[in-house]
Simulated assay, not measured.
Amino acid sequence: MRKKNGTLGDILKIDLKNGSYAFGRVLKSPLIAFYDVASETQTPPEGLLSRDILFKVWVMKSAFKSKNWVIIGNSPIDTPLMEDPWFFKIDPISKKFSRYKDGIEVPAFREECLHLERAAAWSPEHIEDRLRDYFMGIPNKWVESLKCPT
């Protein structure tokens, strides 16, 4: 039986459906960090822990029901990795920007949001697309659609 949610520190193997796997790490639910590594074989979980993080985003719980997302280990998380990232929001009516982190929302200028992820929960399929595109070196339509307007 699959878990309904990941547990803090769970290490995920994500099948990119192109012969390779990407890897992630469950942080504070629903936040997951994704590593800058793709492999055609299962990388030992301990070999991932020192790798760079590509991005941290919120992911829908349905990821843990997906056959493409498999928990391959668990390891305590270092303090720097546990730090919540800032996300940006745009009010749909006023069009004003804000930054959001760990339940705190503060007004922001657009320029402060340009390099932040949009506050959004990603579906597992969109994460798979994003990772596959990244490792193939091509722009991702989901990243582009959620990017802060310039």
Results as ranks from 00 to 15, higher is better:
residue 54 L to K: 08
residue 33 A to G: 04
residue 69 W to N: 06
residue 72 I to P: 01
residue 46 E to F: 15
residue 62 S to V: 11
residue 69 W to Q: 09
residue 63 A to E: 01
residue 84 D to S: 07
residue 85 P to K: 14
residue 53 I to L: 09
residue 78 D to L: 15
residue 58 W to A: 09
residue 41 T to H: 15
residue 73 G to V: 03
residue 57 V to R: 09
residue 36 D to C: 08
residue 63 A to Y: 02
residue 83 E to R: 08
residue 71 I to S: 04
residue 81 L to W: 09
residue 62 S to K: 07
residue 60 M to N: 10
residue 55 F to S: 07
residue 96 K to N: 05
residue 66 S to T: 09
residue 93 I to T: 12
residue 78 D to M: 12
residue 67 K to P: 04
residue 68 N to Y: 01
residue 76 P to M: 02
residue 95 K to D: 06
residue 94 S to K: 00
residue 76 P to Y: 01
residue 96 K to C: 10
residue 73 G to A: 01
residue 62 S to H: 04
residue 53 I to N: 02
residue 77 I to G: 11
residue 88 F to S: 02
residue 75 S to V: 04
residue 40 E to Y: 03
residue 72 I to L: 03
residue 48 L to V: 03
residue 34 F to I: 02
residue 75 S to W: 13
residue 89 K to R: 15
residue 89 K to A: 08
residue 51 R to S: 05
residue 85 P to S: 07
residue 53 I to S: 06
residue 85 P to H: 05
residue 87 F to P: 03
residue 57 V to Y: 11
residue 52 D to Y: 01
residue 34 F to N: 03
residue 61 K to L: 11
residue 83 E to I: 14
residue 60 M to K: 11
residue 45 P to W: 12
residue 53 I to E: 07
residue 59 V to I: 04
residue 93 I to E: 08
residue 82 M to F: 12
residue 88 F to C: 08
residue 69 W to F: 14
residue 46 E to Y: 13
residue 39 S to F: 00
residue 38 A to Y: 08
residue 46 E to N: 13
residue 87 F to M: 06
residue 85 P to F: 02
residue 86 W to G: 15
residue 84 D to W: 14
residue 54 L to H: 02
residue 54 L to S: 02
residue 68 N to G: 03
residue 78 D to N: 13
residue 60 M to I: 07
residue 81 L to G: 03
residue 38 A to Q: 07
residue 47 G to Q: 14
residue 41 T to W: 14
residue 91 D to M: 00
residue 79 T to F: 13
residue 50 S to I: 10
residue 33 A to S: 06
residue 88 F to K: 05
residue 91 D to H: 07
residue 86 W to T: 05
residue 89 K to N: 13
residue 85 P to D: 13
residue 97 F to S: 02
residue 35 Y to F: 04
residue 49 L to N: 03
residue 66 S to H: 07
residue 39 S to E: 04
residue 63 A to I: 01
residue 70 V to I: 08
residue 62 S to I: 09
residue 35 Y to I: 05
residue 59 V to A: 00
residue 81 L to H: 06
residue 57 V to W: 04
residue 81 L to F: 00
residue 80 P to W: 10
residue 49 L to D: 12
residue 88 F to H: 02
residue 49 L to A: 11
residue 47 G to H: 14
residue 47 G to A: 10
residue 68 N to D: 15
residue 72 I to T: 04
residue 47 G to L: 10
residue 82 M to N: 12
